[in-house]
């Protein structure tokens, strides 16, 4: 991405109109969100944001500038020419239609390309294979399962820097929206459905993560910290989680499934709640936990082994149908074509 240079160039152009935004860019280092991007996706999004503003300004600026000029020039008691019956000019009309059509045409091509490029379902190319993370939304916390590592955390997501992350997401309750602004896109999570998201962090650091879709009184507390660390630190984190964490067993899960935020879970689990980040580590998770939650079927608590990596979950494949977990294909199983949720009228 072209980054800083192009951005500040546009900034100068927009100065008179976007005083507030500029003010904001002044303290950008301090600013959360994608104006201070920490990954390629968010950086591209910031770039698009300014490109679109620059293009649309071609239509907007004349209105903002000319309206006061017209008001002054043709004011009552002014001396400008008065033509009460003038109501049509072919040339002005052609320009009026042509300019927006041209801009929309350019924008259209641009959007088509960028939408495909930044599709959250599209894997990010990288030297290393992506890190698989499974995310489950609860009222009002997020559970992160690392299927390759066989561990899980709550309240904190730890990812290695410069390695793509491939998320599989679902919700154990109502509709929610998973979002790490500094890294990139948000995506909705729904029960009985799996959505996908691909992100990458290119700076080490701590970034806010949240839920964007209102889901009850603890909504604003449904937050987590994303920690982007180097590979050694990540391995260290995995190791420590395996050693120091507690198993995600039936009792622990019952606590997670209750309504409450990270801190409530920590308190119930008997952990120190003074730590505002309230990171909760689980050393082992049941087999196929993510998909059983997604499918709403009972969890097999006897199979607490390290899960092998999920293979080849493409967007068109069916995930979590009854065949996927023969542990408990109950009769109230939904038919499972909801992986890629096509919106239909």
């Amino acid at each position: 991405m072209t980054g800083q240079g192009k951005h500040s160039l546009q900034r100068n152009r927009l100065y008179p109109l976007f005083a507030s935004l500029i003010l904001l860019s002044g303290c950008r280092a301090d600013m959360p969100g994608f104006m201070n991007p920490q990954g390629p996706i968010a950086q591209a999004q910031r770039h698009h944001f300014w490109v679109i503003i620059a293009l649309v300004m071609i239509v907007v600026i004349p209105v903002i500038i000319q309206t006061p000029l017209i008001l002054w020039r043709y004011r009552y008691r002014g001396h400008a020419v008065y033509r009460p019956k003038w109501d049509m000019s072919r040339w002005l009309d052609i320009i009026m239609w042509a300019v927006p059509i041209l801009i929309v045409a350019i924008l259209g091509v641009y959007i088509w390309r960028q939408t495909h490029e930044l599709d959250p379902y599209r894997p990010i190319a990288g030297d290393q294979p992506p890190l698989e993370v499974q995310v489950v939304g609860y009222d009002w916390k997020w559970l992160f399962i690392y299927p390759e590592q066989g561990i899980a955390t709550l309240g904190q997501l730890v990812v290695p820097v410069d390695r793509p992350i491939s998320f599989e997401l679902t919700s154990a309750t109502v509709l929610q929206s998973f979002f790490i602004p500094a890294l990139g896109s948000q995506i909705d999570v729904m029960n009985r459905m799996v959505t996908r998201l691909h992100l990458e962090a290119d700076h080490p650091g701590r970034f806010e993560g949240k839920n964007m879709q209102y889901n009850g009184e603890g909504f604003h507390r449904q937050r987590f910290v994303t920690r982007a660390v180097d590979d050694d630190a990540f391995n260290d984190f995995v190791q420590r989680t395996r050693e120091q964490g507690q198993p995600l067993d039936r009792d622990a899960y019952a606590i997670i499934a209750q309504k409450g935020d990270n801190r409530d879970v920590a308190r119930e689990l008997g952990l120190n709640t003074d730590d505002t980040d309230a990171v909760i580590r689980f050393s082992t998770v049941p087999d196929g936990l993510f998909h059983t939650i997604m499918a709403g079927s009972p969890i097999d608590w006897s199979a607490m082994t390290i899960t092998p990596p999920q293979q080849g979950t493409t967007r068109t494949s069916v995930i979590g149908g009854p065949s996927d977990n023969d542990t408990a294909p109950s009769s109230d199983h939904p038919s499972s074509s909801h992986d890629r949720k096509e919106a239909q009228p």
């Binding site: 969100g33 994608f34 968010a42 591209a44 999004q45 698009h48 944001f49 679109i52 503003i53 649309v56 300004m57 907007v60 924008l107 959007i111 960028q114 939408t115 490029e117 930044l118 959250p120 929206s177 979002f179 602004p181 990139g184 896109s185 948000q186 995506i187 964007m212 879709q213």
Partner: peptide, 18 residues
């Protein structure tokens, strides 16, 4: 209208939706 066009851009909307 300008912010509407911004929101209508899916790639940016992923950031500012909701």
């Amino acid at each position: 209208g300008m912010t509407g066009i911004i929101l209508a851009t899916p790639s940016v909307d992923y950031q500012i939706h909701n």
